[in-house]
Design a protein around this nucleic acid. Structure first.
Lengths: 357, 357
DNA sequence: ATGAAAGCGCTAACAC
DNA sequence: GTGTTAGCGCTTTCAT
């Protein structure tokens, strides 16, 4: 059902119909009512494609990133979708397999679909930057969900550094000195911040960090950050595996840490399993803390002390920032960077409840 | 960069450019090369919006469903996205909050965007049917991912009934007679099939089902399937909670079952936690089996025996079916229904490894 | 207060 | 082999 068909039936002009549609005052009350009734009768649905072609605004945003939806970003994806919908925007997916070519193709396809803006999700891969830069060069707004200073674009990100500082500090306050860190060996800023926060807290407490306990777990085998395939391979590795393998490695050493700081809740669950197999009690003999506060955290074999990531807020903020750019409400040429604060959620795996008794 | 600008620069006509673009043979080799080079030089990206308006094909598919992406459907969503991309299709999200109005709005928005077809994901809510029917009435292909016979449309679904039959049979073969079933109280076909499969196996073994052990867990409070809000409220309830609450309830009864069949792995993890708190050993005193074979299943406090859902295959099959309809490769007016088989994955939580020793 | 018409970028039918 | 042209359904400007 097109506007043309409707005006033909009503014997009015396109202009008048348009005025009714846009709520313009310049239309006789009786005409307006007649039009409105017909619109309702035929259940007119405006063609967004045609409108988009004309206005150069498609009311859609592209969600891009390396790798697929994962447990760790599901909350953000949902929040973005939800917030976008509320503002009348659709979200179109363009997740690549992590390869540079697919990355470029995803972005190109989305641009062909004339998305109004982009949100980039997930850890940044070095070779993605040029593709993102191309978006910016084309004058299309882009909000990243992780700090990517090279890009000079808007960003909403969870303050992982202070989160890991908080987490580590909490363990230190419980008397732990022998603390291991379980992260992956991604070179991304995002992962780096975890380590930075950890080291901040250790330094503040004047506790030396034992390098053998900073584990960049890699179940696939001895790859280092210099292996060009390492990054990609890890997309298929679950955090559970990371945690299990990493913790197993550390627990097999002659000197064991008394606490683990993990890269995620799932990683902590894997570590929990490793401890269990090694006959080590958590939290009595070993404290383990996670990150994310996901659905499963309270139901882990030992409920996890962790950091709550406000996914809802993060996703919303990203969408709002993007739409503010689109509407021109933010004119500022310099990137807007919004840091999202986290909260420490104390459950049993850190052992502080135990200590109190 | 538009076609017009390119032909102007090259001094050729739109038709010729078009022929090069479509790979038509009717173009002089030298011209073709000249055009191709220019295309590459200016990095021409065809405007999919304009093309869509003209051809009435947008090469996009709408993914609809009540509620958001959840851990249980994440694999299917990724598979759909991936398979669609490979065929040159984009996927646009239209997840509602589970309310009838939002459901309708999501579908309307997607239709306004002229998606070529729909895939419906998630458990069907009774009031969604009319909206889905409207899609069919408009002649737009729709593939559902759960059986919805009332709808008479194509469907790709996991054979839950036989999966639960398999699962229950396995437990029975291990000597279990006192088996409890933990499902939610959704009235959907999908959930009903779980119970049917369970009862199939019990009947075949001539074991009576104790109704008090068929638990439709509902942590929110005593709502039954007749409560109109019950369905919706459960969207916000995690499977972990379900499992924990449901198992706790059953384990508190004077006569306890010796095995639990759960609605998902996460539900089983919740049940595992409930058993642990009650001081019941798994699998020695209680067998627990899940469904999904998700990432965490091998890393549960007791690695889960479960049913592997071939999400990859399911998602691909749905996309392929949809595209076959779109291309007219399937002309058959009657719905194509494709049942996806599952496999039993044996780990520790069923106790059969234990028994062998 | 209403109508007419141009054009967004593309495809496809038709003419040469 | 190549060029021309008529729309797809909408928004917007200009004219009345």
């Amino acid at each position: 059902m097109t506007q043309q068909e409707i005006v033909d039936r009503l014997g009015i002009s396109r202009g008048t119909l348009q005025r009714v549609l846009t709520g313009s005052a310049l239309v006789k009350q009786s005409t307006r009512e007649r039009v409105l009734k017909e619109l309702e009768r035929v259940k007119y649905v405006p063609n967004a494609i045609a409108a988009g072609l004309k206005t150069r605004r498609t009311k859609s945003i592209g969600l891009v990133g390396p790798a697929a939806i994962k447990m760790s970003n599901i909350g953000k994806v949902n929040a973005i979708h939800q917030a976008a919908r509320e503002k009348g925007y659709s979200v179109i997916f363009g997740f690549s397999d992590g390869s540079s070519e697919e990355d470029a193709r995803c972005i190109r396809d989305l641009r062909a679909r004339m998305v109004d803006g982009f949100i980039a999700l997930g850890r940044g891969l070095p070779y993605s930057n040029p593709h993102y830069q191309a978006i910016l060069d084309a004058g299309i707004p882009l909000v990243t969900l992780y700090p990517l200073p090279e890009l000079k674009t808007d960003c909403v990100y969870v303050d992982t550094r202070s989160a890991y500082r908080k987490l580590t500090k909490h363990l230190i306050s419980l008397g732990h000195k022998d603390i291991a860190l379980l992260i992956d060996h991604s070179t991304s800023q995002f992962t780096a911040n975890r380590e930075l926060g950890f080291r901040d807290a250790m330094r503040a407490a004047k506790i030396p960090v034992r390098d053998e306990w900073v584990v960049r777990a890699d179940p696939v085998g001895g790859r280092g950050p210099d292996d060009e395939h390492a990054e990609k391979l890890t997309w298929n590795t679950t955090d559970y595996e990371y945690g299990f393998e990493g913790a197993s490695t550390v627990l097999a050493k002659k000197k064991r840490p008394s606490a683990f700081v993990c890269l995620s809740d799932n990683c902590a669950v894997g570590a929990l399993r490793a401890a269990s197999l090694a006959g080590i009690r958590v939290p009595q003999d070993l404290a383990i803390v996670g990150f994310d506060d996901n659905e499963g955290a309270p139901y882990a074999s030992v409920p996890l002390t962790t950091i709550h990531q406000p996914d809802e807020m993060t996703g919303r903020a990203a969408v709002e920032l993007l739409l503010d750019r689109l509407s021109g409400r933010i004119q500022d040429k310099s990137p807007v960077v919004r840091k999202i604060a986290t909260t420490l959620v104390i459950r049993e795996s850190c052992g502080c409840q135990l200590r109190k008794r």
